[in-house]
Design a protein around this nucleic acid. Sequence first.
DNA 1: CTGGATTAATCAGTGCCCTGAGTAATCACC
DNA 2: GGTGATTACTCAGGGCACTGATTAATCCAG
Lengths: 160, 160
Amino acid sequence: MAAVDLTNHPGHLARRLQQAHYLLWNAMVSEEITSPQFAVLNALVDEPGLDQRTVGERVGLDRSTVAEVISRLGRRGLLDKVRDPGDGRRFLLRLTEDGVRTHRKLALRTARMNQVFLAPLSAAEQTQFLDLIRRVADAAEGLRNPGDPGTPVEPLAAPT
Amino acid sequence: MAAVDLTNHPGHLARRLQQAHYLLWNAMVSEEITSPQFAVLNALVDEPGLDQRTVGERVGLDRSTVAEVISRLGRRGLLDKVRDPGDGRRFLLRLTEDGVRTHRKLALRTARMNQVFLAPLSAAEQTQFLDLIRRVADAAEGLRNPGDPGTPVEPLAAPT
DNA sequence: CTGGATTAATCAGTGCCCTGAGTAATCACC
DNA sequence: GGTGATTACTCAGGGCACTGATTAATCCAG
């Protein structure tokens, strides 16, 4: 009767997009290491010694989720977790050699996967696709982070 | 060292987009009914009497997930589930009056939320945003559904 | 009409994602 | 230097998402 067309709903599309990505990741990158797990490895390659909270901030995982992800990576022997001698609340994280190797291997596959994922779009469209998602996600994150001067956002005023 | 810039990775962006949507949904639409639950209600408004499998197909939920979602909606009294007299494997689903009321109420709020969500983009960009996501998601779904003549997709050939 | 495939749904198991509550360590102010 | 707020992390609980195995009903070939 009064049903809505979900194909115009960004949330619905975002969910489908993520599902599609999940499946492709499993097929082309890894069945063991997930995309969020790779993001954590990637953050620690560049900055060893980060604590959990900061890693979560870098890759967009909340405190609970980042704890689970890190515990899995630890169980697999891809990273080590030691108490910060300077601040007993923190754990300092760093990749093991295995973690570095795994990251390097997956980085290559991830690049290939991204090409396949974006293949239906032209080069110009790909750039815009990433740009548009980034802008929407950044703005929405800003909505629940007052004090972040990034984009105050007038919620009800449609631009142009 | 060899870290990758995740802000160019569609999968990472898709995840952040969905997280952002999740939070906005909670703030502007409902803390009780989730977006996938709304999608199921929406499917049943138009076509009462669908079975679980078909509902899942319509809204993009796999067999396990759709079972959980439907069981929650049933517990909340928003839909009824009866054995198909013509085929004892199926359950026929239909909304209760409460389900229809809930759907109507949330449909309005969802429309408002979508405006806020897309507000950082101009009208033209909004259209393209939805179009690009749809194309990428459709193509990726097609990759794991051979037999679906939608888009066979040459995975490694970049268009244009 | 009967026995082997298919199909709808369930269940167990893993992982991501959020919230709210709790614990322990540190910081900051008096 | 001690007390109250803040901070890092953990834990419990609810929900989405996938896989592989199982159950029950139906379909179809012989």
